[in-house]
Design a binder for these strands. Structure first.
Lengths: 202, 202, 202, 202
DNA sequence: GATGAATGAGGGTTCATTCAT
DNA sequence: AATGAATGAACCCTCATTCAT
C-alpha cells in the first residue's frame, strides 16, 4: 500500500539522479538510459514522471533554484552584513557543484532563444538570479537607509558588479583551479565594493 | 588552375559560416547540413576542409581567439593605460557577437573533462585567456614599476577580477539586456580596480 | 514477463535472417536495413543484439560453423568409415547453401589481413576448419592403428587433399552447375584417397 | 607529340596499379582515390580510361586471364606430360599473387548473380577456367589416344579433380601457410591422378 | 588530356520514446 | 506502477562520380 507522497518522493529521487548526470555529461551528451541507470530504475519509468527529456531537464533546473536563507544577524552593521551576504552567495554556489554545470546548458538554451521551453526558462531564470540579487540589493539599500552607504551610489550597479565578480571568478576557478587564489579575490572584490559603497568619489 | 590561397580563403569562409550556425544553434543542435547550407556548399565539401564536426568546432573556436592589438599610446600614464586596456578587452568581446555563444559550448566541453578533444581544448583555452590576461597584466606591472600603482597589490588578483567582472557583466547583459546599464558598470569596475591599484589600504 | 531464452531465440532468428542476406548479397552489398527487413524487425532492433555490422557478420559466420556429429558405426571398417566421413562433410557443406557464399566474404576479410576483426576472424576460422579436419584425421589415424591404412602415409596431407578436393569441387559446382558431375567426382576422389591410404606405393 | 599507343600503355599502367590495390584491399574496400594514388595520377584521370569502378574491376580481371604457354616437350610421355601441365598450372597460380585475391571478389560477384556485369563476367570467367581446363584435358586425351591412359576414365572428371585439388590446396595454403606442406600435397595429388588414369580399377 | 575540388546519395549507428507484458 | 525490447527518425560521414579549369 503506497503512502501518499511516495510518488513525489520518487520524482525527487529521479531529479537528484538526473541532476548528477546532466551536470557530469551535459544535456546533449546525456542519454535517458544513463539517467535511468543513475536512478536505478528502468528506462520507461522516467517517462512515468516526466513527459520528455526536455521536461526532465526543466525539472532539474527548477530544483536547483533553492536559495539558502540568509543570516540577518548583521542587520545593524551594513558593512559586515554586505560581506556576509557575499559570502553566503559564494557558499551557496559552492555547495551546489552541479549548479554551475547544469546552468551552463540552461543558459545556452535560453540565450539561443529557440528552445521550445524558452519562455518558461526565462521566467525561471529570472527567479534564479532574483534570489541572490534581491538579497544583496536589500542589504545595500538598508545600508543606504542607515546612512552608512552613500546614497548616490547606484545600488543596482553594485549588485550587478558583485554578482558579475562572483560568477566570473567562479568560472575562472573552474577553468583553471591551479592559478587562481579564489578566496583572496573574493576578499578583494568585497573590499572594492565596500569602498565604492562608502566613499564612491575616491 | 586554382589561385594560391583559394583553399585557405574558402576554409575561412566555411569557418565564418560555421561560427554563425554554432553560435545560433549550439554545437549539439547544429547539423553539418546546416553549416553546409549556411556556407552555400554541399555537405561533403565541409569534409574537404575539416575531418569531423568536432574539428570544425575547434577551428571555429580557434578562429575566435584573435585578440586585437592594443594601443600603447598611454604607456606613460598607467591609469589611462589601464582604463584603455579594459575598454579594449570589452570592445573585443563586443565585436564578436558569436564569441560568448560559441565559447559557451567550448567551456561546457572543457569543464566536463570527458570530451575526446578535451586536452586540445584545454590548451587552446589557455591561449584564449592568456591574450587578454597577459595584456592587462603587463599594464598593471608597468604601472607598479613606475610607482604609480602600489607594489603591494597582487597584480594577478587584479587581472583575475578585471576579467571576472567583464565576463560576468557580459553574461548578465546577454541574459537580460534591459535591466543592466552595462557601460556604467564597466566604468565603475574600472574605477574600483584603479582605486585598489593606487591606494589598496582604503 | 519475457520467457527465458526469448532473447537468445530472437538472436538466433536474426542470425538466420542475416545469413540469408549476407549470402545473397555479400557483406559489402548488404545494408543493415535489408537485414532488418529480412528479419521482420526495425533497423534499431539489430543493434540490440549485435553492436555492429561487423559483429553481426562474425555471429553469422560463427553460427555456420556447427558441424554435425558423425556416425561412428563404421569404426571397425576404416575404408567404409573414411568414405562415410567424406560423405558427411560433403553433405554438411550442401546442407548449408549459405555456407560457401558467406564464407567467401569471411576468407576475403581474413586473407586481406587488415580487417579490424582480423585476429578474431583467424581464430574462428581455425575452428571452422578444425572440425572437419580433425574428424577426418581421426578416421585416418584409426585406420592406420588397425593396420588397414599404410602407416607410412602422411595423414595430414591426405586430410588436406580430401578437404581441398571437396572444396574445389564445390567451388566448381557453384560456378558452373551444368558441366560437373559432382557426385561422381566425389566418388573418384574418395577412391583415389583410399587407394593412396591402402597402397601408397602404386 | 604523343606516340600512338601511349593511351593504351597508360591504360595498362592503371590496370596494373588497380590490380594491386584490389588484391590488397578487396573490391569493396578499395576507393578510387587509392587506385589513383597507386597509379600516381589524379582521381579524375581514372575516369578518362574507365567509365566506372565496376568497369575498372572488369578490366583488371580480364587482364589477369593470360595463361602462360605450356611446354609441349613431353608430348610423347603422357605421364610426364600430365605432371608437367599440373606443375605449370600451379606455377601460373603462384606467379600471380594477385590472381586468387582478385578472383575472390570476382567469384563473389558472379555467384551472387546480381552484378550488373554478371553476364559479361560469366563469359569471361569461363575463359579463365577454360584455359587451364582445356590444356589439362588435351594432355589427358592425348594420353588416352596413345593407350597410356585408360580410355574408360572420365577425362572431364579427372580434370575437374585436378583443378579442384590445386585450388583447394592453394586456398588452404593462403589461409594457413604454416601447417601445410604444399609441394608434397601437390605431388601426392599428381600421383593419385596418374594412378587413376593408368589403372582406374584399383 | 589531366586534375582535384565539389557534390549528395547512401549507409552505419544512436537514442528518445512507446507500449505490451 | 514498472519495465526494457522494439522502433525509426535523425545525423555524421564516406566515396563514386562530375566538371570547371
Amino acid at each position: 500500500m503506497p503512502k501518499i507522497g511516495d510518488k513525489d518522493a520518487k520524482r525527487l529521487d529521479l531529479i537528484k539522479a538526473a541532476t548528477e548526470v546532466f551536470a557530469r555529461d551535459g544535456f546533449a551528451n546525456t542519454r535517458m538510459a544513463d539517467v535511468a541507470v543513475a536512478a536505478g530504475v528502468g528506462k520507461g519509468t522516467i517517462y512515468e514522471y516526466f513527459p520528455s527529456k526536455d521536461e526532465s531537464f526543466c525539472a532539474v533546473c527548477e530544483d536547483l533554484v533553492t536559495w539558502p536563507e540568509v543570516d540577518n544577524s548583521f542587520v545593524d552593521d551594513p558593512e559586515r552584513g554586505f560581506a556576509a551576504i557575499i559570502e553566503a552567495v559564494v557558499k551557496s554556489y559552492e555547495e551546489s557543484n552541479a549548479f554551475y554545470l547544469v546552468l551552463l546548458d540552461y543558459w545556452a538554451a535560453i540565450l539561443r532563444e529557440k528552445h521550445n521551453q524558452h519562455d518558461v526558462f526565462i521566467k525561471r531564470a529570472e527567479k534564479i538570479y532574483d534570489a541572490p540579487r534581491s538579497r544583496i540589493l536589500a542589504v545595500v539599500k538598508a545600508g543606504q537607509q542607515k546612512g552608512v552607504f552613500d546614497k548616490s551610489v547606484d545600488a543596482d550597479a553594485i549588485v550587478a558588479l558583485a554578482i558579475a565578480g562572483i560568477e566570473g571568478l567562479r568560472s575562472q576557478k573552474l577553468q583553471d583551479p591551479q592559478h587562481l587564489d579564489f578566496p583572496k579575490c573574493i576578499r578583494i572584490l568585497t573590499d572594492m565594493l565596500l569602498r565604492m559603497l562608502t566613499s564612491p568619489k575616491g
